[in-house]
């Protein structure tokens, strides 16, 4: 199976937003010297009155965005995820979520997009941090299609939302007529042996691993869990009922993210299924390109296939 390379998700985010904002002057983008990395230069050139620059000040970025949203503006607060969700976490928690100002908080260059730049520039904590904050939904699109759908859905979403995009070109995974709904996982592939539950840019390696495993007679279900909040609990339970093992995959610390969300559902639901969380371990993260870091931690077709085979052996020792 050949996957076709699309654009970086944050390019699609910016293009979709520009398209929408040209018809709605109430849509505002707020940036913290981040319009370049957010691919928002065309937006600023086309709609200068709809782009608000606050300089390198993430706390202020979020607070100002919350104030604008409280006055009825449809606000997208855009900044690298690594800074936005640490430095401005209190503003996200209080000014956006707690005060219920429906800002769309947009973390760009997320995960290990800036892999070579070191831990200052990695966001491997944002799922964990924001999952614990009441009243903010979390979306992590896998490809260009999901990105566009997430932006369209965010436009009419009544609650605060966090959207997370990477900066590398990603494979197209869906056809344009794929149903998309906030909080509803998309089944990319059906199978009975193993389920890969993946989020964001780790969905493509999961799809490629499933393809590889099919070659050795192991059939895999692949779910794109593009929404971490509200969480598609039923899709996880269904995978536990209908397949023999579950592997979660995320561009995030293995602590507090997608994997532990699934583990919680499985444990509390009484499901006993071989289970493995693949992500970035709790260590001094290796540096390099996103692809190199993914390979290093087994977030690759080869690595995930090996994990699946090992997990099935645990289940079937004969």
């Amino acid at each position: 199976m050949e996957l076709v390379l699309g654009k970086p998700n944050q390019d699609v985010f910016a293009a979709t937003l520009l398209e929408l904002a040209q018809h709605d002057p109430n849509i505002l983008v707020v940036t913290s010297d981040s319009r370049g990395s957010g691919k928002l230069v065309p937006f600023g050139q086309t709609l200068p009155d709809q782009l608000i620059e606050v300089g390198i000040a993430e706390q202020n970025l979020v607070g100002v965005s919350a104030g604008l949203a409280s006055a009825g503006k449809k606000v997208f607060a855009v900044s690298p995820a690594c800074f936005l969700t640490t430095r401005a976490l209190e503003q996200i928690k209080n000014d956006v979520a707690y005060s219920n100002n429906p800002v769309r908080v947009v973390g760009i260059s997320a995960g290990v997009s800036y892999g070579a730049l070191g831990s200052t520039h990695h966001s491997l904590h944002d799922f964990a941090a924001l999952r614990t904050v009441n009243n903010i939904d979390i979306m992590v699109p896998a490809d260009n299609f999901e990105t566009r759908q997430a932006v369209l859905a965010a436009m009419h979403h009544p609650r605060p939302m966090y959207l997370r995009f990477g900066k590398r070109a990603v494979y197209d995974l869906h056809t344009p007529d794929t149903p998309f709904e906030i909080g509803k996982a998309i089944k990319l592939r059906e199978g009975g042996d193993v389920t890969f539950i993946a989020s964001g840019e780790t969905v493509a390696p999961a799809v490629l691993a499933a393809e590889r495993l099919a070659g050795v007679g192991i059939s895999c279900r692949v779910l794109s869990m593009h929404t971490l909040k509200p969480f598609d609990t039923e899709a996880v339970k269904q995978a536990a009922r209908e397949t023999h093992a579950i592997i979660t995959v995320e561009e995030h610390s293995i602590c507090g993210g997608l994997g532990e969300a699934c583990a919680s559902i499985l444990m509390q639901g009484g499901y006993h299924v071989p289970f493995n969380i693949v992500g970035i371990p709790d260590e001094d993260t290796v540096t390099g390109s996103q692809a190199e870091i993914f390979n290093h931690y087994g977030i690759s077709a080869e690595g995930l296939a090996a994990t699946a085979q090992a997990l099935l052996q645990v289940e079937q020792p004969s």
Binding site: Q59, G63, V64, S70, K73, Q91, N94, D95, N101
Partner: peptide
């Protein structure tokens, strides 16, 4: 108008509201 309590938040909120 706004939930506050953590210090250092009100001015950014006010700036956003005034900008709107």
């Amino acid at each position: 108008e706004q939930n506050t309590g953590a210090l250092g938040h009100g001015l950014s909120l006010a700036v956003g509201t005034a900008l709107a």
